[in-house]
Design a protein around this nucleic acid. Structure first.
Lengths: 310, 310
DNA sequence: TTGAAAGCGCTAACAA
DNA sequence: TTGTTAGCGCTTTCAA
């Protein structure tokens, strides 16, 4: 519980060396003898030295700030993601600046803008926006950006392979003998709906391919699609919908599967199959790419969590 | 979508004045003629000037950073709170740095420490920690701190009046004719459980006072307490529990009421009465106190949302 | 009313 | 290996 607040200049004075030497010791720069380095580090530790990120930033160094720009926290999936990002950033000595866009395109740009002026070391963005003008703008900023969930062409992306996940969901359902698949499409207000589009497109493609009966509907009309004479299964590209339809599915003995495997399923003790992302891994990949430039292989593995609703 | 990045020195050069004068114009300081001020502001706007928070911070000004230290986002109540805080901070030109403690005392101190070194303009803290040593430490930092949910003596606090809310819940239930009240106490791991303690204490006090039969139990044993011959009502000091017990309550035709009125209730279309906080108001009070020193009158109004579960 | 200058704590380039 | 110096963009004080 120390209050520290000692500067490199102070340490230099105490150690009887120049401030430049202290900087060399503290930042692992070359051109310093092991002995002086050790002494300086000892004193720094003793006095509880902490680098001043503001001074470092203005002098052209790193800000140790990571910006996270997401829609909101209405979907617990993003709550988990934010927690994972924060935890991993903290472990690396970075702080997390969070901003919510509410899927508003103007707000999204304002967020990016603010973070840019704050000189964050990188931005993790779940974009509602899209288009080549936007992409060009983001690229022009020269700030490492990783997109999450929705893709933007030319910009690094982390997330599950939604198409493959969708195919897996269909296969899972078909294997259990369901004959008609009901896809519950969410109402989206944002322009960039990459993840959702991928899920739906793959769903349709695989159904066509497997010659399976299917229909795409919305939350309100899902129940109507449940035929008494055909074994039906509901596929929800977001768990929130699946949870709402769970009892209806049960009532009609229809199968049901969701996406994202949100924490709530376990918390409420629900029997709902879901496609799980590896959230901590996604967060790590995004942060690593920003901080160390680690190349991104874009698709984080997914996994069907079977609880018996299919 | 401008990239701006012009400094006061640049503006000074463009306007043919000194940097000091630009500073006077931009920061509403006195000692500048309306005419030059107007010209400078025009140029600043034209070039998309944005103050550099890092330079401002290191020169002893404000960082325009607000730290938010909370347990986690497992309870949607905190997700909402974080969103409200961020929205209000943004509207005032402040950015939000979020840190999660997982109710770990060491981590909590580490978070505070980090924010202190970042020179945030204030900290909004939901403490798991407590004790006078801790309070003294926080005070010694000389950073405006507002606590949320759990109280710390000597430190400004915003939140609902939990005792009064608890009394209202009991009154609501009693008025409907329930004879036995079952209080489902959460298992807490943190040291500071101010809010929960207040709720429970008030519950017991009012039951004693009203001579109402009551019992305090935990989630696992709540069902056992439901008597067939007495009209029972379950009081859950957190909605997450109430949602889990909702069907059980229905089955036994017991009443049930939760706390916090989390978004999920509406999302899942549940019939669950709950004590609602005014989250945006709480967020505003906390942020206003930090930024403008607005005195805090500590108790934000609460309200029973009646949906028919009592 | 305006200008000039020092200094915040760093980074980085150059000199010794 | 080490010291010195300039400079990042601000705030603040003192002089003009």
């Amino acid at each position: 519980m120390t209050k520290g607040n000692i500067s490199t200049t102070e340490i230099a004075r105490i150690c009887g060396v120049s401030q430049g030497t202290v900087d060399r010791a503290l930042n692992d720069r070359k051109g310093i003898s092991p002995k002086t380095k050790e002494m300086i580090l000892r004193v720094a530790r003793e006095y509880g030295y902490r680098p001043n990120i503001h001074a470092s930033t203005i002098a052209g160094g790193k800000s140790h700030l990571i910006g996270v720009v997401i829609f909101d926290l209405n979907n617990p999936y993003f709550s988990d993601m934010l927690m994972s990002i924060e935890a991993y950033c903290t472990s690396l000595g970075y702080s997390t600046v969070v901003m919510f866009t509410d899927k508003d395109h103007e707000k999204e740009i304002e967020c990016i803008q603010s973070l840019y002026y704050m000189a964050v070391d990188g931005i993790i963005l779940c974009p509602a926006n899209s288009g080549s003008a936007y992409e060009k703008y983001l690229l022009s900023l020269n700030v490492p950006i990783v997109t999450l969930g929705n893709r933007l062409s030319g910009i690094p992306y982390v997330g599950i392979d939604n198409a493959s996940a969708s195919r897996d969901a269909v296969a899972h359902v078909l294997k259990k003998g369901y004959k008609k698949l009901i896809y519950v499409k969410p109402a989206l207000k944002q322009r960039n709906a990459f993840a959702q589009a991928q899920r739906l497109d793959a769903f349709i493609a695989v159904c066509e391919n497997e010659k399976a009966a299917y229909v795409v509907t919305d939350l309100q009309n899902a129940e109507k699609e449940l035929d008494a004479d055909t074994p039906c299964a509901i596929i929800c590209p977001t768990d929130i919908y699946a949870i709402q339809l769970l009892s209806i599915a049960k009532k009609h003995s229809a199968g049901i599967i969701g996406f994202d495997n949100i924490r709530l399923i376990e918390e409420l003790g629900l029997t709902l199959d879901s496609i799980a992302h590896n959230v901590p891994l996604t967060a790590k990949a995004a942060v690593d790419h920003i901080i160390s430039g680690t190349p991104i292989d874009c698709s984080v593995p997914h996994q069907i969590i079977v609880r018996g609703s299919v």
